[in-house]
Amino acid sequence: MPLATPPAPPIVRNAVTASGLWRAYGSGEAQVVALRDVSVAFASGAFTAIMGPSGSGKSTLMHCLAGLDTTDRGTVNIGDTVLTGLGDKALTKLRRDKIGFIFQQFNLLPTLTAEENILLPASIAGAKADPAWVNRVIATLDLSDRLSHKPTELSGGQQQRVACARALATRPDVVFADEPTGNLDTRSSAEVLGFLRKSVDDFGQTIVMVTHDPSAAAYADRVVFLADGQIVRDLHGPTADSVIDTMRDFENAVPLAGKAA
């Protein structure tokens, strides 16, 4: 699929929609219910954070939304496409063309340079990325003089920025970020989050980010709070403090009956 011109931001209202999701692991006594009847929609062109204590199901929710994991019940849509029930081939194509990923670590292939890593999804698709767009992304992320370096020659922050560039290079419908700043120090975190914010503001990108860090969540337009597999709060226009307060309420409210990892 040649990406000759960056398409105008789609006028679909919701980039990602989940309806009545259930997900459980294990069986019998050892069964853990990770998601209980979760329904949520993520607006296109918005930056949403998903937060919750350990074991709340936030990672599971993201995996299901991104098509990386199957659900026991319920449906997931990416834009107009129904994700649930798609075969592996179709899912793969979807991940390649419409979804971008940024993980907490191990985002890059250690044997490729930064530039090759950024262009990786396009290479896999056998397509050419739009050079103007890619250059813009690289410039915005301040990676122009790092392109020929291998991941081992880059700092943690730089690696994550390369990962961001890769995620955006194909202008996906949605970017899923799983604790993207978890391993970074404050300054690098700020850079990455700043860029994510910019991509939403300037490029109309849709971002769904899982995080445990309140100051990271503060960059988002909206924070969805999960606890014990259910959505318990929806915060718009978050600040670090309001997030901290909300989190504290949970940890006190949720008794120690939470499932051990």
């Binding site: 990386l68 081939k89 390649r96 971008g100 990923f101 191990f106």
Partner: peptide
């Protein structure tokens, strides 16, 4: 494994 999982996550097919 991790590298291959990453490739699969960002869109490489099984055949690839």
């Amino acid at each position: 494994q991790r590298e291959l999982a990453l490739l699969r996550a960002i869109g490489a097919g099984r055949g690839q």
